[in-house]
């Protein structure tokens, strides 16, 4: 394939030269639930796709012998970006909820602000494992139901997922920018709320 410098840099919006800090939010969900659609709905660049190799170190941290069958395992993920201000970028990652993905959580997503668990009510069970792992990693999260069709209401979803009352649960349409914005705002407000409580605990 012919590739030139201009192809490499592309027409993508570049980060401001003054960018000094980057934040991460991870959107977790099963196959086909709309993760990349959500990333694309709010990202200022076309979502990019890449992959990471699971290292032995990451296996060690997260234990379990499930991964032994193969020496090299890779996990693909998508991401987009929002320039928050002249100094700060926000990266949005779409991450598969499958088990092997969680072995690279620390490799890629350590230090994330929080996570969005994207749910399809027709396949609720797809997100049980993700919710369990987020709790294990002490990563704050909100749950967003991507409405593909009529389905159980939010109270029924909350019960089915056995969500703690303080975990925000909202409906969304991953194709719509406004809706995805609202999901991210809900997450950040939740983080601010948790932050306040953490400080009161110390006081």
């Amino acid at each position: 394939m012919h590739s030139t410098t201009s192809d490499l840099v592309g027409a993508d919006r570049l980060a401001p030269p003054s960018a000094v800090d980057a934040l991460k939010i991870v959107i977790v969900g099963g196959f086909g639930v709309g993760k990349t659609t959500m990333v694309g709905a709010v990202s200022e660049i076309r979502p990019l796709s890449t992959e990471e190799i699971m290292t032995e170190a990451s296996v060690g941290v997260d234990d379990i012998g499930r991964v032994r069958e193969k020496a090299t395992t890779t996990v693909a993920f998508d991401f987009g970006r929002i320039t928050l201000n002249a100094g700060t970028m926000l990266y949005l990652f779409g991450a598969p909820g499958q088990q092997r993905f969680w072995f690279i959580w620390d490799q890629l997503f350590a230090g994330s602000l929080g996570a969005v668990v994207l749910v399809d009510t027709r396949r609720l069970a797809d997100c049980f494992y993700s919710i369990d792992r987020l709790e294990h990693h002490r990563m704050p999260f909100v749950v967003a139901v991507n409405r593909f069709a009529e389905g159980p209401g939010l109270p029924a979803v909350r019960e089915a997922l056995d969500l703690a009352p303080e975990v925000p649960l909202i409906d969304c349409d991953a194709r719509r920018r406004e809706s995805c914005k609202q999901v991210l705002i809900t997450l950040v407000e939740h983080l601010a709320h948790l932050n306040t409580f953490a400080r009161e605990d110390i006081a």
Binding site: L23, N85, T88, L90, L113, R177, I185, V188, E189, A192
Partner: peptide
């Protein structure tokens, strides 16, 4: 302060 900046930026998206 960072969270507040993120909120403002998201509202302005």
């Amino acid at each position: 302060g960072t969270l507040k900046q993120v909120l403002v930026a998201l509202h302005n998206l």
